[in-house]
């Protein structure tokens, strides 16, 4: 078929529209760089790690406490949420009765859509007071980890469920015909095959955890410090941006855009990692 003239124009229009997404990505990177660059040129990269403290209005830009906060909260939350999410996927596919499974999966889908402020609100008004009874001040690393784990659990569970669902039915039937028990089938057949898909889901979940702002901001206490216990308040990179952007000027504003660049870089690494795993996924 040779496309007619109107079709050629159509394809040109479609290509222009498709290019917009790429242009947005470039614009995001360009504008973050543009805003961060002045500070980067005057103080370089090392002072973000070697300065005495985070007092951006007095020219001290140590972001290590925020990096530690982001890292600890994300890893803690992933450590809790990933296994639970995987169990949840296995449960709804292989252990739940059929009707129960449908209801359960519907619930998880619904939960994945709940806004982060709602998790934050519940954390702030219910969870934080509970932790405060255990040990003051309540708003803490622990509260951040628990709320974030709760928030990303449904998303990872949906991804895990989808990955498990892609395991070819014939292999499962074959294993069942060979007399393997349900537990053995899940452990020896389904999980090894679904592992790449599950890992991709977990990595994308980690990206979401690092980028989450509101829920963590509301429950983690936001004190700039490297925490010594689970009950110490912490501030994440994202919370720092959200808290200080409203009054940041000059170098301070640039420092916040610098931390956004760091977040962006972390997410890029995770996306590329997820893609490289996904590319290797082959079902026979």
């Amino acid at each position: 078929m040779s496309p007619c003239r109107s079709d050629r124009n159509l394809v040109i229009l479609l290509r222009l529209l498709s290019a917009v997404s790429g242009v947005i990505v470039l614009l995001i990177i360009a504008f973050l760089l543009k805003e961060a660059l002045p500070l980067f040129q005057t103080i370089g990269l090392t002072r973000f790690f070697s300065d005495a403290s985070w007092h951006p209005t007095e020219g001290r830009f140590n972001i290590r406490p925020m990096l530690a906060g982001s890292f600890l909260i994300s890893f803690g939350a992933m450590g809790l949420a990933a296994p639970l999410a995987l169990f949840s996927g296995i449960f709804s596919l292989y252990y739940a009765p059929q009707k129960g499974a449908r209801f359960y999966q519907g619930l998880i889908t619904l939960l994945a859509g709940i806004p982060s402020v709602v998790y934050g609100l519940w954390g702030l008004l219910v969870l934080v007071p509970l932790i405060r009874k255990l040990q003051a001040p309540g708003a803490s690393l622990l509260a951040g980890i628990l709320i974030l784990a709760l928030m990303i659990l449904p998303t990872i569970a949906l991804n895990a469920h989808a990955a498990l669902l892609r395991v070819p039915q014939a292999l499962i039937r074959g294993a069942a015909a060979l007399g393997l028990s349900r537990g053995q089938i899940v452990k020896r057949v389904v999980l090894p095959l679904a592992l790449p898909g599950i890992s991709t889901g977990i990595i994308l979940g980690a990206g979401r955890a690092i980028g989450e702002t509101m829920a963590v901001l509301m429950v983690a206490g936001n004190v700039v410090q490297i925490p010594e216990s689970l009950f110490d308040p912490v501030r994440t990179l994202t919370a720092n941006i959200a808290l200080e952007m409203s009054y940041a000027l000059g170098d301070h504003r640039a420092a916040l855009f610098m931390s956004a660049l760091i977040l962006m870089a972390a997410v890029l690494v995770l996306v590329v990692a997820a893609e490289s795993i996904e590319a290797k996924t082959v079902y026979e």
């Binding site: 614009l27 995001i28 504008f31 973050l32 805003e35 994308l204 990206g207 690092i210 980028g211 989450e212 702002t213 994202t238 941006i241 959200a242 952007m245 916040l256 855009f257 956004a260 977040l263 962006m264 997410v267 890029l268 995770l270 996306v271």
Partner: peptide, 10 residues
């Protein structure tokens, strides 16, 4: 994958 706060800054 871009975090929403980064969209906010952008």
């Amino acid at each position: 994958g871009v975090p929403s706060i980064v969209f906010g800054l952008f």
